[in-house]
Nucleic acid binder design. Structure first.
Lengths: 225, 225
DNA sequence: TCAAAAGTGTTCAGGGTACACCCATGG
DNA sequence: CCATGGGTGTACCCTGAACACTTTTGA
C-alpha cells in the first residue's frame, strides 16, 4: 500500500508548549533551563517528541500533564515550525501549542523535578531554538481569542475579583484598560456571575468575587471585552 | 550530539495546499483525483512530501510551483494535522497551507499533467483524508484576513472592476454585501486606485478598472472591508 | 426601448471611548 | 484619619447597516 511512501524521508516531530499561568497575580510562563545539548544551558519552552501512538494534540497534552500533573487543560495549536536549521541537534519539526492553566491546581514538584520554572511573562529571557518566534505567534493568537472568547478565565482561580481579571487582560493585551468600560463589558457577558462572596485579602474594602458559568456561556456565547 | 534524538520515532511529513483562484469570476479550488492508493479515486488537495533540504514553507511553495508554474505566491500556513489515522496508507503528519493565485497567470498544462483540475468552490466534492477539515480551517482564517488585509486582491487580475471584487468577497465571506457600503470601504482604502481604464466586457455601460497599489498600502496599512 | 450592470449619499442606531468622584475599611 | 483599592454613569463620536434611484449602452 505504502511503497511510494517508503521512498520518502521521515522527520523527528516534537511539540512545544507555551504554558501560561497566573503566579501570584502575574502572568507567567513555564520554561526549562536545558540540561543537555543541543542548546544546553539555554532557556526553552517545554516540549517533547511525538510518540507513534499519539496524535499531535495528545502529545501536547501528555507533555503538559507530565510537567504540571494537569489534564483537561485548554490548549490550542499555534502552528508548525519547520525551518531546516531550527534545531542545531538534528532536523526536528515542531508543532507549537499554548496552554492556559489554573496555577493553583498544578503540581509544583513535577515542575521542579523537570528542571522547569515559572518566569514572569514580562521578563522572558532569550530562548533557544526558534522559541521566541513561537511566543510571538502565540501572543498574536492569544490576544485575538482573549477579547472574543472567555479563555482568559481559564487562567484565573475559580473565584476571582474583577481587578484580577482586568489586570490579566491588561498584561495579555499589552495596554491599560479603562476600569468602568471593562466592568461594563463583564456585566454584558452574563457568563461571569457574582458568587456573593467577598475577597478581603487584596483590599481593605473587600472586592466581590465572581465565577465563570460555563452553562450560561454555552447558551448565549456572548463574550466581548 | 543527537544520541537522544535517535531513540525517537520519525514521521512522514507532507504539505497540503488549498490553492484558490478565480476561474471566470468564480472562486475555484485546485483538486486532484487521486490515481493511486491510498484514497485512490477520491478527490484531494494537492500536496507532497517534505524533502530534507527544504523548510515547510519551501515545500509548500515547491508543490505549488510544480502544479501551477507560479512562484512568489501569497501563502499562509493553516496548521498541522496529525491525527494518527488521518492517512490510511501510513502515518503522515500534514502541514496545510493556502495559496491565493492569479488564475490568468498560471500554467494550465502543468495542472492537467498532474491530474488536477479546478473545481468551483461552492461545489467541492467529498474529499479524502482529513482534507475537508483542512478546508474548513482555511476558510476561517481566510475570512478573517480578507476583511482586514488586502489579500483578496491577489486573486483578482491586475485590473479589476469593483463588481468583480465585491463578488469575490461575497463568495469568500459567504453572504451578500451592500454595494454602496462596499464601495465606500474601497474608497477609504487608498491602496485601491482607479486606473482610468474601462472594462466593457461584462457590462454594456462599462465599469471602471481599479488596481492595487502596494506602495500606498505599505505606507498606511489601511484596509477594512 | 428595454434589459442589465454601474454608479452614487444619507440617515439612524448602537457600540466604543473618554472621563471623575464617592465608598469601605484596615492600619 | 488617611491611604488603598473597589465601585459606579454619562456624554459624545464614530462606525456599521439599511436603503432606492439614475446612468449608460448594446442588443
Amino acid at each position: 500500500m505504502s511503497e511510494f511512501y517508503k521512498s520518502n524521508h521521515r522527520y523527528y516531530l516534537s511539540v512545544d508548549c507555551v504554558v501560561l499561568g497566573l503566579n501570584s497575580g502575574r502572568l507567567s510562563i513555564l520554561l526549562t533551563k536545558r540540561a543537555f545539548a543541543p542548546e544546553e544551558g539555554k532557556w526553552s519552552l517545554i516540549g517533547g517528541f511525538v510518540q507513534p501512538e499519539e496524535s499531535l494534540n495528545q502529545a501536547a497534552k501528555r507533555v503538559l500533564t507530565q510537567l504540571t500533573g494537569l489534564s483537561n487543560v485548554y490548549m490550542e495549536q499555534v502552528g508548525a515550525f519547520g525551518e531546516i536549521d531550527r534545531d542545531p541537534g538534528d532536523r526536528v519539526i515542531s508543532v507549537a501549542y499554548y496552554a492556559l492553566i489554573n496555577f493553583d491546581e498544578h503540581d509544583r514538584r513535577k515542575v521542579m523535578s523537570h528542571n522547569a520554572c515559572w518566569v514572569d511573562f514580562a521578563d522572558i529571557p532569550e530562548l533557544g531554538f526558534d522559541h521566541s518566534s513561537i511566543i510571538t505567534h502565540t501572543l498574536k493568537k492569544l490576544r485575538f481569542r482573549f477579547v472574543n472568547e472567555p479563555i482568559g478565565l481559564k487562567l484565573l482561580p475559580r473565584q476571582f475579583t474583577l481587578s484580577q481579571m482586568q489586570s490579566l487582560y491588561e498584561t495579555v493585551l499589552g495596554h491599560r484598560l479603562d476600569k468602568r468600560n471593562f466592568r461594563k463589558r463583564v456585566q454584558e457577558a452574563k457568563c461571569i456571575e457574582s458568587t456573593g462572596e467577598v475577597d478581603k485579602l487584596n483590599s481593605k474594602r473587600g472586592a466581590a468575587l465572581y465565577r465563570f458559568n460555563a452553562e450560561i456561556y454555552e447558551k448565549d456565547k456572548k463574550f466581548k471585552i
